[in-house]
């Protein structure tokens, strides 16, 4: 109960600070959009664009997530707030869940803003079910945010963090990335074989593992 209340408070704080610096949050969106556009430019034939739309969305979100995580921790370290959190009567688990939920929310926001543009630019009509697409987006963003929140705490305190975060995060989220890209592509193209649900199940499993494991390990990192 106490943990739940603290998580809610942490989430409130995160969303409040992100709202205050919304120009920086929108920067994350533009970054993701730029990535998506660059992929389109580097593709020789526009006929294959619809087929790679799903993967490109997640590539953009993956790259954007590193920016958003960097910023999320820059705020904490600026005036020692992270140390303040450690010495405040707040459980590390609550700090983790609050931050991870907020990071998920930012990514979901970016994804939802990106989707209509993607449909336009990549000429990828959505044949599959829209609720399932939203579920995929939600689970996928969560899969990026949970390990990202843990690794963000590590790398934000180390030198050369801008290189280190992608290097630690990218290999870890490969399974999630494969799964969400496939699910998204299937939903875009229509899914006669009904393959998307099993991909979504894989992301859900990934989420379950990392949302629990990272939360346990977070306290160890914070304490050090």
């Amino acid at each position: 109960m106490r943990t739940l209340r603290q998580t809610a408070q942490m989430l409130r704080k995160e969303l409040l600070t992100e709202w205050r610096q919304r120009s920086r949050v929108s920067g994350i969106f533009w970054f993701a959009l730029a990535t998506v556009l660059m992929v389109a430019f580097s593709t020789p034939e526009s006929t294959i664009l619809p087929r790679i739309a799903g993967g490109t969305l997640w590539l953009g979100l993956l790259l954007a997530s590193t920016r958003s995580l960097d910023q999320s921790y820059a705020v904490e370290h600026e005036h020692g707030a992270m140390e303040g959190l450690l010495l405040w009567p707040v459980e590390p688990v609550a700090v983790f869940y609050g931050k991870a939920l907020a990071n998920t929310a930012v990514l979901v926001g970016v994804a939802l803003a990106l989707l209509p543009l993607l449909v336009g630019i990549y000429d990828a009509p959505i044949h599959g079910s829209l609720p399932m697409l939203f579920l995929t987006v939600l689970l996928g963003c969560g899969a990026l945010a949970a390990p990202g929140t843990l690794y963000g705490l590590i790398t934000s305190q180390a030198r050369g963090s801008s290189v280190l975060l992608p290097l630690l995060l990218f290999p870890l989220v490969v399974p999630a990335l494969l799964a969400v890209s496939n699910a998204t592509t299937k939903i875009f193209e229509g899914d006669p074989m009904n393959q998307a649900p099993s991909w979504i199940a894989l992301v859900a499993a990934f989420d379950a593992v990392h949302w629990s494991l990272s939360a346990v390990l977070y306290g160890r990192i914070q304490e050090d």
Binding site: Q9, K13, H79
Partner: peptide
């Protein structure tokens, strides 16, 4: 270090920290 969030006002900072604890 003041352990404050730069983007929030003083009152908001206090309300955030009070809420957390």
């Amino acid at each position: 270090k003041p352990h404050l969030y730069d983007d929030l006002s003083a009152a908001e900072n206090l309300s955030v920290w009070a809420g957390l604890g």
